[in-house]
């Protein structure tokens, strides 16, 4: 099985089927691009500018009823230049059962606006993403490692992290 190191997702300007009018109009001023194919699990997805990531999520929550943050994580594509990471938020409208994946791309060392002001549950999710990928979240109240020891060196879920042999007491 070959290792996926670049994203194969294609984006267009037209929203795919199944995205509600409310969601489209909420995201209209933000210049989002929509993925051509349904993503994993059949969720429609969209790509927003990194600096407007929280803004897009706020618009979806307040104007389109996406009131639940299902998941908030990141993907690493080490060969994609210059923005190797994709940070994504999986949103759900609890009334209509509509789901949407909001993505943004971020380079190594650049930060992403936090979603903590919108959903409390984003707190630990962003700490986990920081812990595993080293992506800082701007405006996060307490951005420290959550799983690994505080003095751990390295970001374990990056693709270039060694599969084994990383041992801080033997190096």
């Amino acid at each position: 099985m070959s290792k996926v190191t670049t994203s194969c997702m294609k984006y267009t300007d037209d929203a795919p089927e199944g995205v509600s009018e409310a969601a489209q109009s909420a995201l209209a001023p933000l210049d989002v691009r929509w993925s051509e194919h349904p993503e994993l699990g059949g969720w429609p997805g969209c790509l927003v500018e990194t600096v407007r990531f929280a803004e897009a999520c706020a618009a979806l929550r307040d104007s389109a009823g996406f009131d639940m943050l299902v998941d908030h994580t990141a993907v690493d594509y080490p060969d994609r230049k210059p923005e190797r990471f994709t940070v994504l938020a999986l949103l759900m409208n609890m009334t209509t059962q509509e789901r949407l994946m909001v993505r943004c791309r971020v380079a190594d060392g650049a930060s992403v606006p936090t979603l903590c002001d919108l959903w409390k549950s984003a707190d630990w999710a962003e700490r986990e993403t920081f812990d595993m990928f080293g992506i800082p979240f701007e405006g996060h109240p307490d951005l420290t490692r959550i799983y690994m020891p505080q003095d751990f060196d390295g970001w374990p879920l990056r693709r270039d992290f060694p599969m084994q042999g990383h041992n801080r007491f033997r190096d």
Binding site: G109, F130, G134, P136, P141, D142, L143, T144, R145, Q150, D151, D153, W155
Partner: peptide
Amino acid sequence: RYVKQGPQKIMARGVKPQ
């Protein structure tokens, strides 16, 4: 060790401690 070394090593990747 953490108390002795201080938190400098934690945020070694360009993120300032809170």
